[in-house]
Design a protein around this nucleic acid. Structure first.
Lengths: 210, 210
DNA sequence: CGGGGTCTTGATTTCATTCAAAAATGGTGG
DNA sequence: CCACCATTTTTGAATGAAATCAAGACCCCG
């Protein structure tokens, strides 16, 4: 299991659980804890005044989320699947952070690890075309999904993928079908996925015409 | 090195300049310097393999960009207008960063200040509709534009706005026209802008139907 | 006073959303 | 184990919005 370089420094904390849909923390709340995912998938959610819901990132086992970079959390974090996680209090996390800054002289994978998915999502959503977005999305998640009997476990609801890609759920569905018909992916069930043609996927993701 | 407590955090560095279009640093290059803008506007650019160009952020006077959060810069930085800036070497910046972490116990506006615009852009681009995106964009920049004779100086090329909003330049143009006709903004010249109806702007930005 | 670039406008085409409905899935209780 | 229901997913057809295509206007600079 992937784990950030800071993890071993912490004392073993209590392992906690969350059910699908459960909220870990709310956008705007003061950053009290940093959450470290051990198992399962979480989503970062932002809701506009008018109720438009965007998923700004998906997070996986090994990710730390809710870093106290600002005073308040910048997104709401919810469990997508059953979740196992631990959490560190803000002062405790900052202490470890600073120590590891001093020792290693670099600003830590941890900050990067939370910011990067958000950054990448911006670029994915900025692409033209349903297929390009879906492919770019798949590339960014496929390697972090657990494997089972030669297939990736892909438990993300279509609605969530749509909210992440800024598309209608129907468009997501049609996109997946097209990729199946093109022989780029296999999806025998909703939540099982296998990459058949990585090159093709990458080509479409980076804007190649079909 | 001994320094009185009242001393400015950084020693006064050399003031540098850049012309429109000039590159400050390139995506992928190792983070050698942090750039602090003193005057003018810069853009963060990401180019896909196929040449699709996205502007992932605009930066203004007071912003620090190119923070060494990862080993390499995650975007290319270019001057949009004439630019004045200073820069700090990576080790120097990190030293100040850590000290200020320790003293204040918080992770600094500085990181936030670079990440936030990128985060916000993701949300803007994730919105449906040309007008909603343009309005959300205007809200995020209008207060950072310098004022002149009762109008904001708005020197961003339409092409850049389009690359930022993931729209065609023509759509940006039509959007601005519509906002003008609705009496929400005034744009007597390309690079002059006045907000006539902030509430209206905010309403459209957050998804209100017209 | 040109001339190259950016910007704006209009007409057309393309593509994604929407609307509507059917199929699949998962969970529950008999 | 099966029938039933609620929810999610998938599919098809129609609508609508933004991209594209093609000119024309404007602006800056020499």
């Amino acid at each position: 299991m992937h784990r950030p370089a800071t993890a071993p420094i912490f004392l073993a904390p209590i392992m906690r659980q969350a059910d699908p849909g459960e909220v870990l923390f709310l956008e705007g709340d003061p950053c009290e804890y940093v959450y470290e995912l051990r198992h399962g998938i979480a989503r970062g959610v932002n809701i506009s005044v008018e109720g438009e819901r965007q998923i700004t990132a998906f997070f996986f086992a090994g990710d730390q989320i809710g870093l106290p970079i600002a005073e308040a959390y910048r997104f709401t974090a919810e469990a997508v699947t059953e979740l196992c996680f631990v959490r560190y209090s803000r002062p405790c996390w900052i202490e470890v952070f600073i120590r590891s800054c001093c020792e290693q002289g670099r600003l830590l994978p941890s900050i990067c690890a939370e910011q990067d998915p958000i950054f990448r999502r911006g670029i994915i959503v900025g692409r033209y075309g349903v297929l390009a977005r879906i492919c770019a999305f798949l590339i960014s998640v496929i390697d972090r999904l657990p494997e089972k009997e030669g297939m990736r476990v892909f438990p993300l609801p279509r609605v969530d993928i749509a909210a992440y890609l800024a598309l209608a759920p129907e468009s997501v569905c049609r996109g997946f079908r097209q990729l199946r018909e093109m022989g780029i992916i296999a999806m025998p069930q909703r939540d099982r996925l296998r990459l058949e043609d990585r090159q093709g996927l990458e080509a479409i993701a980076s804007g190649a015409q079909i």
